[in-house]
Design a protein around this nucleic acid. Sequence first.
DNA 1: TCCGGCTGACAAAACGATTGGGCAGACATG
DNA 2: CATGTCTGCCCAATCGTTTTGTCAGCCGGA
Lengths: 344, 344
Amino acid sequence: MTKRISIRDVALRAGVSVTTVSHVLNDTPGKRISDETRARVRQVADELSYRPNSVARSLRLQRSQILALVSDEIATTPHAGQIILGAQEAASKRGWLLMLVNSGGDRETERAEIRALQQRQVDGFLYATMYHQVVEVPAELADSPVTLLDARSDDPRIPSAAPDEVQGGQAATQLLLDRGHRRIGLINNFHDIPATEGRLEGYHRALRQAGIQPDDGLVMRERSDAVGGYRAGLAMLDHYPRPTAIFCFNDRMAMGLYQAAAERGLRIPEDLSVVGFDNQELIADGLRPGLTTVALPHYEMGAWAVETLIRRIEDPGTPSEQVLLRCPVIERGSVTPPGARPSG
Amino acid sequence: MTKRISIRDVALRAGVSVTTVSHVLNDTPGKRISDETRARVRQVADELSYRPNSVARSLRLQRSQILALVSDEIATTPHAGQIILGAQEAASKRGWLLMLVNSGGDRETERAEIRALQQRQVDGFLYATMYHQVVEVPAELADSPVTLLDARSDDPRIPSAAPDEVQGGQAATQLLLDRGHRRIGLINNFHDIPATEGRLEGYHRALRQAGIQPDDGLVMRERSDAVGGYRAGLAMLDHYPRPTAIFCFNDRMAMGLYQAAAERGLRIPEDLSVVGFDNQELIADGLRPGLTTVALPHYEMGAWAVETLIRRIEDPGTPSEQVLLRCPVIERGSVTPPGARPSG
DNA sequence: TCCGGCTGACAAAACGATTGGGCAGACATG
DNA sequence: CATGTCTGCCCAATCGTTTTGTCAGCCGGA
């Protein structure tokens, strides 16, 4: 392992001082250095393929160009990848790096991890939680720039990005309305998380805008997995008059609904249209027919959070924003107009 | 934002030199400092809640206690979370931090990212690829400690961790044999990746050990998704004599097989036992009945890779090892003895 | 008294960058 | 010739640690 090239080596070989090398390579404004010298320094740096040591620079500048993503268990969820990817690519595009830490939900390890990161001179934090919700930011982070991910704070000074659940629920329902459905069921989640209420509200809004009075008999709540979807599905399909379309809280529940429909001898989409939520490709692509669903903007959230965080680190005056990102509908094959004959 | 406490502050307040504080807090061996002074220093450090600045330490020590996980697209795959989580927790347990970078598969950005990380004094690299395979380590990494993840190298000096596909295939097949099945089909992947061949070999081995001559008519190859599983499933179920059990290359194909079985009016597991691979919980838990499958040791791979890497950083003499990690069978409800009556 | 050895600490030099404040020399001006 | 201004560059301090080498004081032995 050969010794790493330092700025001193470049200076020596170019016959100038370390100062000059630094000024040249950083294009320090207001410093007068002849074009000749500039060229020579640059060439030598190139020849030696000199790369400045970021640790030394961090120490001197008191900033590291490193962001930390700390989360409870987010790395465990199926979508984690997209959040992390969005954050990582956004950081990398701007020359920043990303550190990853997860606390497993334990508040005490969380504090310890955050302190470790602060000792590393991390410049800012992304704080992400598993289910988007109102969140108490750890006291340790009070002095550091923070952006929330898939969560928001009561404190408006803390920027955050989360999915627009209401818009997503409305879009899903609107799609069914646009195809001509009037009796549209909702198989909702049992737990009171923001997604549950948001999607319900979106469903209601779409119906009302279409002049349809929401019918509580068409809304069920169950465990948010395939078994829950199956049970609620059976109940709803046996309900009379049966809905021609059902919007499911998520794709897992939709998967259960497919099973229930098969059991009742109903074909999708001819006899029943289905829309899911989450765009879990494993499920949505795997079902027959493919599941039309609503995608969560995970990648976008990660990217937005990083961009916002960097902006606020570089210019602390930037106003805080709490955004809700659009959830787009992803069409596959589980929606047709009611009473439609199979097309092919 | 109050000024951070430095070692100088501690020294000042304890009435000793910076040197002494350092010795005390690091328990530098061979340094004589009275118990009295030790106690005082520690107490002051505590009072001020002093945390050494790791950047300065990294600069001085020329090591950062930071590992980098660089991957092509691994963060995109559904399992990424587990690998990352395993790596992160193992690192954290030892006081190390993890940086994350992914190249999107582009060799050029990969080089750039690696250089950026080396400028940051990263002490070692985990290099992970999407599908485990023999891999050429980028030249940039030649001088740094590296461990491969979900991949291996032709160079035995580079340690690696990957799933033991053969053992996994064998375990899946053995489970079916143990339940009394003799005609066991295999719906394999179309692509020649290590998983394809490994799982096939495991299947063959288990059959031979049970004294069964493998029948090529019972092995099909298809696209490794639900559609592929569906098509191969139909073909295999129409095959005569029909197998009583089928081992699928992965859970997605098994999902397709469920659909094919339903279409032929066959019940799982009464009429057909099914074993998958990957333990994609979204699918395996979502199907009815739950899918018995083989889990990939993603978490363990991440953890093992970090432990190995750290060991080799701290003691470069540690011999290199290329390990294959066990893939355990996860039983759910898709396997019964052939011809069994439904139990309840 | 002088010397050697031990104890308990400290000063200063790194590590590799950035940056504020000089300081020579060239040239113009009066 | 003295003075002033500008150009082009460099010195040295700094960021917060670790570590090497040194040193004052004390005690015991000759």
